[in-house]
Design a protein around this nucleic acid. Structure first.
Lengths: 152, 152
DNA sequence: TTAATAAAGGATAAAAATGTCCTTTATTAA
DNA sequence: TTAATAAAGGACATTTTTATCCTTTATTAA
């Protein structure tokens, strides 16, 4: 559905947004640890996100990754687009290049419903909104699968 | 979303169903050619479908692949399950093992809508129904992306 | 019983995705 | 200016997916 790299990217971004206060910067090893991703792989992904201006990075001591105010309202789909591209939302379910609304394959209509629902899920969720739902706590990753209202 | 192997499998099955009359059997090379898949890879996939009793195969001269009457009403999801498994319909969008209805991640509700839509697309479409929509013609693959009503 | 035919199945190869290691570049404080 | 720190980036390794090749097994007709 969506690549592992992309999932790591979304998790990392949510983590960064959830720690967005007063000039806090996070380094690769901390991010990788908290979102449960291999460090060097996480580094590559953060690089992509930074180049796409989804997050911001600074080199050197006191550097790291963080998110700026103007970046908070971006929809998650920007992450998907940066890492996986938009093809999941566009391609035919049977892998037919000829398939389109005017030349539909037998699964087209049903499949399009699912594809569009997926696109909407990522399009209508902003980074800020996602991070709002995250609980405080020792382990980011454990609290990620736990709505704020349902905190233990 | 769904693997290439699985797409080949669905296309092959639609092709076989669309040729389902009076003891017609199709061999690997013909199927592979018509659904535009590499022959040896197609063979492996047909083997899986045959073992799962989604289609039927017979060895030897006058052998080949075909579908029996009792197999026509199977939903396409059986093919997906045989080749990719059911994990696409079950796993968390952010790749979290802890995520569930009672412990939802911030994307859970939105993502579930898309996941369920995908599952329904495959669950509520039978092989027979799919093949019904396919046009007659020289090239199966070209006519696949063309509803019967819109035939040229 | 033999030759021919077609799928089954094992082994291997190529490509893509994931993951790792190490060097370079930028920035900071001393 | 130097040493330390952290991201950028290049090269490589591993794993998974996709694809190919070749041998074996089953079936048929002659």
């Amino acid at each position: 559905m969506i690549s592992k790299a992309c999932q790591y990217g979304i998790r990392a971004t949510i983590f960064i947004v959830s720690r967005h206060h007063d000039g806090v910067k996070l380094n690769i090893s901390e991010i990788a640890r908290e979102v449960d991703a291999p460090e060097a792989f996480m580094a590559k992904i953060l690089q992509v996100l930074s180049k796409h201006r989804i997050i911001t990075s600074l080199k050197g001591p006191y550097g790291g990754f963080f998110i700026e105010d103007f970046q908070l309202e971006q929809p998650v789909i920007k992450i998907v687009n940066a890492i996986d591209g938009m093809s999941v939302f566009e391609e035919c379910g049977l892998g037919l290049k000829q398939c389109s609304a005017s030349h539909p394959c037998p699964m087209h209509d049903q499949y399009k419903i699912a594809r569009d629902a997926l696109q909407n899920a990522f399009l209508h969720t902003s980074l800020r909104k996602l991070a709002q739902e995250v609980n405080e706590g020792d382990s980011f990753i454990k609290n990620l699968a736990l709505k704020k209202s349902e905190s233990c």
